[in-house]
Write a protein that binds this DNA or RNA. Sequence first.
DNA 1: ATCCCAATAT
DNA 2: AATATTGGGA
Length: 370
Amino acid sequence: MGEKLKEQSLDAGSNFVPKIISDILTEVSVIDDFSQKLSKLNFYVNAFEEELKKINAFKRELPNCMHLLKDAIEKLKEEELQLKGKEVWPVMEQFISLKSDSNEIGRDKRSGDFSDKKNWMSSAQLWSTPVLYENDFDSKNQDSGLHFRSRYEEEGGIGSEYQQQVCNFGNRGGAFVPFKKPSGGEMKGNNGIVSVQDLPLSSPVDEMGSYDLSMKGKCGNGRVQQQQLAQRKQRRCWSPELHKKFVNALHQLGGAQTATPRQIRELMKVDGLTNDEVKSHLQKYRLHIQKLPSSSAGVSSSSWFTQEQYGDLSKAIITHSGSPQGPLNHGGPTKGVWVNDGDSIEDDEDEKSESHSKKSRLQQPVEDHV
DNA sequence: ATCCCAATAT
DNA sequence: AATATTGGGA
């Protein structure tokens, strides 16, 4: 009897265990399924968040745009009123001519509006840029930040271009000036050459674009001046930090007159900085301290390269109210570059002025050309 | 930034 | 002697 019972229970147990296992398996599969769904959901949520970010980016610019749009419309109305009496409106004509047909007078407002809108739509850049920024931000790495910045530097920021256009519009009602992209290739592509070397302290600037534009007016002789602009070396950006390092090294080496470019460079320990760059900077520095021997009193604003270098940049950045703008290294334009370096004037070698005998700078022009 | 030159090192 | 590197200056 006892045995039989035992068998039974054993039997039951042996049945029970598989059942449990199968149950568990079922549960597991359910859970698995669930987790799969969860991950999918997660994915969607992420995607959604991405979109939300973009939307926010748009939203930031929205008030601005509305404002400007309003201005534009008001301007239009104003002009309409002004020209109401006259039979033709040269202004309108001009920019209606962009469209194929010439509209009749009666529907002026509508057509104006339409044209306006159309133009706005066509200026997709206005919108695309912030988005671009977002993207850069996502794949955050120092470089991309820099690129973003430099782009702004060259373009003067969205705002400025934007306003410029509005200006054109409101101003004399001339034909709309279509956006012209600075044409400069994307920094990313361009930068391949420099790559790693170029570290944080430099801020690559795409010279092509601005150069072209500025050159356009100048070269009347038809001669193309841009030499091998394509492969030109990146301009070294002497950020306040960088300059500070420079001055620091300078002091350690006993003043501007005694320190040599190479020593300075080594002391600065800045990756990617070349002797020539330091040399050039040193040269300017020497000139500067020679010019105003007691710069210590100059407080903040007395810096040679500050203004022109950072004026634009700061403006461009500020224009963008919302932009987080990477901290990076640029050092705000706010900080005076020279500020505390006033003491840098090592008077010791100042008065020296050398015998200048060095070399009489004969420098024969090498008249070898026939 | 680039060019030229002189001094110096290899 | 030829060449490379470096600093100074323009």
